[in-house]
């Protein structure tokens, strides 16, 4: 009945048995906080994001931070040797993590990362796609949907233009990218459930 944290946002999946549940959570929180701050810094650089109301900026970040992190950290999932690199720098095989209790979520994140990396996007394309992931007008709790929608459309047009210019013979890439959005939503939902269950535990 040992507890493991199979999220790569941890230094390692091993949990110190002498720590209380609260201490374990605090340590985990300490690990993912810098990554969340980086997402906020990224959002601030999206042209037009800071023109949205503060309420909507927070709502978009609350809803989309995990999805942005999945895209940004897709490279932690090494599809070839089936390993995951944790923040501490150590790699763990899928089999090892499976024995520690990982399941559907980690497998799904592997599949997602593999398909995303296979598209061979440049850093600029990946950044613009990440902005599209974050600025979604159908997130709950938005007070000015029209403004978010306008920014979302601008970003999607820019992404399509960039992809079309960089990959003139691969018109399906843009469509494939847009199809990644519902995949990310599903991962987000499963992740939230598991994380909340862990925190309660």
């Amino acid at each position: 009945n040992r507890l493991y944290l199979v999220c790569p946002m941890n230094i390692s999946p091993h949990v110190n048995l002498h720590k209380t549940g609260h201490e374990v959570w605090e340590e985990f929180s300490h690990c993912f906080t810098p990554a969340v701050r980086e997402v906020v810094e990224f959002a601030k650089k999206i042209p037009g994001f800071r023109d949205l109301s503060q309420h909507d900026q927070v709502s978009l970040l609350k809803a989309g931070t995990f999805e942005v992190l999945v895209v940004r950290f897709a490279s932690l999932f090494n599809v070839k040797d089936r390993t995951v690199t944790f923040l501490g720098g150590n790699k763990y095989s899928v089999e090892t993590l499976k024995a520690m209790g990982s399941g559907y979520l980690l497998n799904s994140m592997f599949d997602f990362s593999e398909k995303l990396m296979n598209l061979g996007l440049s850093e600029e394309e990946m950044s613009l796609f990440t902005a599209v992931v974050l600025v979604s007008a159908d997130r709950s709790g938005l007070e000015n949907v029209n403004s978010v929608e306008a920014l979302q459309e601008t970003l999607i047009r820019a992404l399509r233009s960039l992809i079309t210019r960089n990959h003139p013979n691969e018109s399906a890439i843009f469509t494939k990218l847009l199809l990644k959005l519902p995949d990310l939503r599903s991962l987000n939902n499963v992740h939230s459930e598991q994380l909340l269950a862990f925190k309660v535990h």
């Binding site: 929180s29 906080t33 969340v36 701050r37 906020v40 810094e41 601030k44 800071r50 503060q54 900026q57 927070v58 970040l61 609350k62 809803a63 931070t65 939230s192 994380l195 909340l196 925190k199």
Partner: peptide
């Protein structure tokens, strides 16, 4: 748990990170 981000403490981190920027803008 209708608001996972708040329950997980994400909202607090996000607000603090954004607020620094908003204060800069006011300056």
């Amino acid at each position: 748990f209708s608001d996972p981000a708040s329950n997980l403490g994400l909202e607090d981190i996000i607000r603090k990170a954004l607020m620094g920027n908003l204060e800069e803008r006011q300056d």
